[in-house]
């Protein structure tokens, strides 16, 4: 029983990070109808910038907001430089539907190459901001450590901030309106292009947070976040790819089920399990467990 409880706690901590990555993907999907595969690149770039701040100032808490802002700026810049052109040019012809996906793929390669040129391919490690020794209750030490608590709390805070923005502010209203019906939103006086840029900036920030949170318990290299991108995608699909709550829940479901499989069955099954979950969700309930009850369109 205790083992089960500990495993679930670890799953929640891992799942939180998947939720953040899923959130980043959902934000872009809602505003642009593109799964942004470059998100792994954007997050890794922001994390390297955070890493640079840490090595110079030895302060994780300073690096965190800087990485976050860097992530937001990168996201906004990508939207302005690339996505706008893409939206104008690639809307007809045989491959119009897949052109944006291919463009984000190119972007992923580009960012990764640039990161590789600046920092090289060596594995690097963060100094831990807080301890990774499990909490102790009496004589029992559980695997759940302060670092996991930090991950969960930060994720919850980020999620809360986003839900307040989306539900309670004018900005949130225009973000939702542009996602729902861009044409009508435009008629209602919303600057859809600008709103999309903000959506990309938010997504970039969420990805940066995910990168800054996952890296202390892992290592940093130009493609160390690839697996996180895949997990984030699986989480987003579980949640229906449309909803922010779905992203959060999807991340937790994936995180907990992975933790259970790793603990009770085999530690080499992480990837196959994630993949099977993805296929199963897509086959059984393609609109996601939380998603709106309607058919999917590309």
């Amino acid at each position: 029983m205790e083992r089960l409880f500990n495993t679930i706690l670890i799953g929640v901590s891992g799942g939180s990070i998947y939720s953040l990555m899923a959130l980043a993907l959902v934000l872009v999907w809602r505003s642009t109808r593109v799964v942004n595969f470059a998100q792994a690149g954007q997050a890794i770039l922001s994390t390297y910038i955070g890493y640079e701040v840490i090595t110079h100032t030895d302060n994780y808490w300073l690096a965190f907001p800087i990485a976050l802002v860097a992530g937001a700026l990168t996201g906004a810049l990508i939207d302005i430089l690339m996505v706008r052109t893409l939206m104008k040019r690639a809307h007809s012809g045989p491959v119009a539907g897949i052109a944006p996906v291919i463009a984000t793929l190119g972007l992923l390669g580009l960012i990764r190459a640039i990161v590789g040129m600046i920092w090289g391919g060596d594995l690097r490690q963060f100094k831990l901001p807080v301890s990774n020794h499990g909490f102790t209750f009496g004589h029992n030490t559980i695997p759940f450590a302060p670092i996991n608590l930090l991950i969960v709390v930060t994720t919850v805070v980020v999620m809360l901030i986003f839900s307040v923005i989306f539900q309670r502010t004018n900005l949130g209203l225009s973000l939702r309106a542009s996602a729902y019906q861009p044409e009508i939103a435009r008629l209602a006086g919303i600057r859809v292009d600008l709103t999309r840029t903000i959506g990309w900036a938010f997504a970039g920030a969420a990805g940066a947070v995910a990168g800054m949170l996952v890296t202390p318990t892992n290592y940093l290299s130009p493609n160390s976040l690839d697996l996180l991108l895949v997990s984030g995608f699986v989480a987003a699909v579980i949640g229906g790819l449309e909803s922010l709550v779905g992203a959060a829940v999807g991340g937790l479901i994936l995180g907990i089920s992975l933790a259970l499989v790793l603990e009770y069955i085999s530690s080499s099954l992480a990837f196959p399990v994630a993949f099977v979950v993805l296929i199963a969700v897509l086959l059984v309930k393609p609109s996601g467990l939380i998603g709106a009850k309607r058919t999917r369109h590309a």
């Binding site: 893409l86 119009a96 640039i114």
Partner: peptide, 25 residues
């Protein structure tokens, strides 16, 4: 070495982006 080993990736990605932006079909 850092720069040279990443040049192919850089060139491939730039080609891909340019191709998709300029002639998506």
């Amino acid at each position: 070495e850092k720069v040279t080993s990443n040049l192919p990736g850089l060139l491939t990605s730039v080609l891909l982006i340019v191709a998709v932006l300029l002639f998506p079909n």
